[in-house]
Write a protein that binds this DNA or RNA. Structure first.
Lengths: 133, 133, 133, 133
DNA sequence: GTGGTCTAGACCACG
DNA sequence: GTGGTCTAGACCACC
């Protein structure tokens, strides 16, 4: 089975971050489990038609964060699942992301209820159930 | 009255955007009202110890967005409140901001309800983002 | 294919605005289509012998207007066509432009019918403004 | 009778140009005739609550264009009515103004008919009949 | 290679 | 004094 990674080049989100996020999500949703092998840099780059450097960078960051482990010559594997962020750190990151949202939407003059409703909608599209294979 | 604006140079957020956001918030909160004069480019640049061009850029963007009006030789003033974007465009921008939020929080492993609750809290006490230490 | 763009530095119209206008026209006329890549900032700057910052500014404004999309590391591309301004805002901008026309022509002592007839003619052969000699 | 000059500070049009245009229009419409005395710089500046330098500049430009004549110590007077611009020059200026209009409205995506209709409306408001005194 | 941000400093138009 | 434009050159992130 090929991992169904999907990137959207027509987005402001950097591609290497999209790749990271996709892998993190795949792990969070259980599609990828501890010990699973990730596609090689070259293979994934070809599949996504992006520059191999871009894939490398994503893998490198995931490696330094302990999400994946690189075993030179054998490949890159999903690491032991563990909480990467402390509770405090998660709070901080959540608040930071929410502040950014408030900044970005402040001048759109939309009621909070509208924002939340749309968030709920997008959230279900964003966290799809793992596909039944 | 003390400093109207405050910026945090050691953040990934560009300075000119921090300035824009602060001004938008000051207007939204009523601290700045229609017709009020903003500090001069040079004065604000000095106060924030940034280059005048940086302030200029923030003012220019706010001007094209219709948030403020520039009158060369006289100064920059808070403009009449008006919505310049079409409903479609506002939805597009909302979706963009929400996608960014979902990306930022995807791997924090927090339930959506938790995110929304925190959003509601922060929304009421909306204030400038603290610096990354 | 020869030069895509041409600017006239000895005009009162700012260079970055000339660049913006030329790109808008190229898109409107179909010479540039959705997805087409614009010349790189540095390349266009060299071609026009202006500072890269000047081109950058034009691209940045077109980006915030949604006319083009910037993908750092890849380039700037023509975006999907969309109307970002509300009907109200478009009327406001039309009125502003028309007022300027009336100011510019007020003392030429020409009947309105003459102005409109010429406008209809020019409208069909719309092309870049010639330089002031 | 005081001349009912009116300026709009909340416009991008420079104030000195607004003053020039008003005087030109007053002459074109017959409200000011050859030999009529214009208000003094100081008086007009006070009436419009603008900087005297601004009025000075407007008078100076009108003087060099031959629209008014300055008689130091006596005042400024409307000059002999004459065509200031040659036919050719008028064509050139008209085309220039129309090109600017087309540039400014190109991205508003409005049909020409709409622009012309609005132009006709604004034109009647802009060239009011001289008031019956 | 690509674009984005910022500084420094010059010059101009407007009031 | 005010803001607006442009250049030159540095540094960074992304591909």
């Amino acid at each position: 089975m090929a991992l169904l990674f999907e990137i959207f080049p027509n987005t402001s989100e950097p591609i290497y971050l999209q790749i990271e996020t996709q892998i993190r999500k795949a792990i969070a949703s259980g599609r990828l489990k501890k010990g699973d092998q990730l596609p090689s840099v070259r293979a994934l780059a070809e599949q996504l038609t992006v520059n191999p450097n871009t894939v490398s960078r994503a893998y490198a960051e995931l490696t330094t964060e302990g999400v994946v482990e690189s075993h030179p010559g054998r490949g890159v594997f999903v690491a032991e699942r563990r909480a990467i962020y402390s509770g405090e750190e998660r709070e901080r990151r959540l608040d930071e992301a929410l502040h950014r949202l408030l900044d970005d939407t402040a001048f759109l003059d939309l009621p909070l209820s509208r924002i939340i409703k749309r968030l709920e909608t997008l959230s279900t599209q964003y966290h799809p159930k793992p596909p039944k294979i």
